[in-house]
């Protein structure tokens, strides 16, 4: 069994250029935004914090979309669940009631964020993964919308209007109120996420997952329970994205159902596609380009959604491999 899997092992990070790009992007993210902050451009640090958090979400989506072939159009639900897992305990710690979950403790909140996301992913994933193709896309979308309406209906936590988080998660030794600290926490989380996905996709589990994407019938014939592999990946991705949501709640100090709107899920997919599906650093690159474009275009005109939409359509029509696909092509052409 192991031998066959070894043969199937894709030509991955042996390409030096992709590895250089991966490390380069992470190092640049570690250096440039803090430098901007130190030079007085606080705004760019904020932008970069949002970018890095969304990049974690995109990396987690890429695990199921790029490596597992599962087009989840409801991934923003986990961002919402994670953010509310910070907001709700903090709310009760400030205003009483539900003492059992009232807490500012960051570890407690993150534990809730990750657990709740994983449980939601397990329940909905078990149902969604019974279906294929368009059904899967629409059902993941519908379940995210269910979470959206659930949060809208919870008047205690602001309903439609959302809720301001008065106090950020409290962690030992560091304070998330410091913008630079918060940024480095997010950056570290991103780096860990990328490394985690790297390890997962190169493990036996990850290869079986990719095998199920490539040829499900063959993987089943080889004795793999593809459903279980997919579901496990789905839960891991959900938990990872829930963690990103907890960070986003801490960054914006504001939670609202709008975070879960299905268009947010669409944006996450666009980031993954823009950067390159099924590549390790692609989603991060995609998030950088996405947030950058959003920033530049919305600066020029309030109608920035129009050029943005056109760009999205053009990307789908003519730019299949994404940015990392271009990088890989460069590598190939240099070899020839």
């Amino acid at each position: 069994m192991t031998d066959q899997l070894d043969i199937a092992r894709p030509a991955r990070s042996t390409l030096p250029l992709t590895r250089i790009v991966t490390i380069g992007v992470l190092v640049a993210l570690a250096v440039v935004p803090p430098l901007a902050k130190l030079s007085g451009y606080d705004f760019y640090l904020d932008l970069a914090t949002r970018l890095v958090i969304l990049a974690i979400a995109a990396v987690s989506l890429n695990l199921i979309l790029g490596y597992g072939g599962m087009v989840s159009f409801g991934h923003a639900a986990y961002i919402g669940i994670g953010a509310y897992a910070v907001g709700i305990p903090a709310y009760h710690a400030s205003y009483g009631e539900f003492d059992a979950i009232a807490s500012y403790n960051g570890f407690f909140q993150i534990a809730i964020a990750v657990t709740a996301s994983a449980v939601f992913a397990l329940i909905t994933g078990a149902l969604c993964l019974r279906t294929r193709g368009v059904y899967f896309i629409m059902i993941t979308m519908a379940f995210a919308q269910m979470v959206f309406f659930l949060f809208v209906s919870m008047e205690t936590y602001g309903g439609d209007d959302g809720l301001v988080i008065d106090t950020r998660s409290e962690l030992p030794l560091i304070s998330l109120d410091d913008a630079l600290t918060l940024y480095f926490v997010c950056w570290a989380a991103l780096t860990v996420s990328v490394y985690l996905v790297h390890r997962i996709t190169n493990s036996r589990f990850g290869l079986a997952l990719q095998g199920a994407k490539g040829n499900e019938a063959r993987m089943k014939a080889l004795g793999f329970n593809t459903y279980a592999y997919r579901l496990t990946a789905y839960v891991i991705a959900g938990a990872m994205c829930g963690f990103a949501g907890a960070l986003l709640g801490n960054f914006t100090t504001f939670i609202s159902p709008e975070m879960i709107d299905w268009t947010r899920s669409g944006e996450l997919i666009f980031m993954v596609l823009l950067g390159g599906t099924g590549t390790l650093i692609g989603p991060v690159v995609g998030a950088v380009v996405f947030i950058g474009l959003e920033e530049i275009l919305s600066d020029i005109t309030i109608y920035w959604h129009l050029p943005f939409g056109i760009l999205l359509i053009l990307t789908v029509l003519f730019f299949r491999g994404g940015i990392m696909g271009m990088v890989a092509m460069l590598v190939e052409s240099r070899r020839d």
Binding site: V71, I137, G266, H305, G309, L311, T315, V316
Partner: peptide, 27 residues
């Protein structure tokens, strides 16, 4: 131009269309 593509391309391109049509309506 999308009929021959897969469903992921359909949803993404039509998602782009939503952005375009909504903004044009706004305009």
């Amino acid at each position: 131009h999308l009929y021959s593509r897969d469903h992921l391309d359909h949803v993404l391109a039509t998602f782009g269309l939503i952005l375009c049509i909504d903004t044009m309506t706004h305009l």
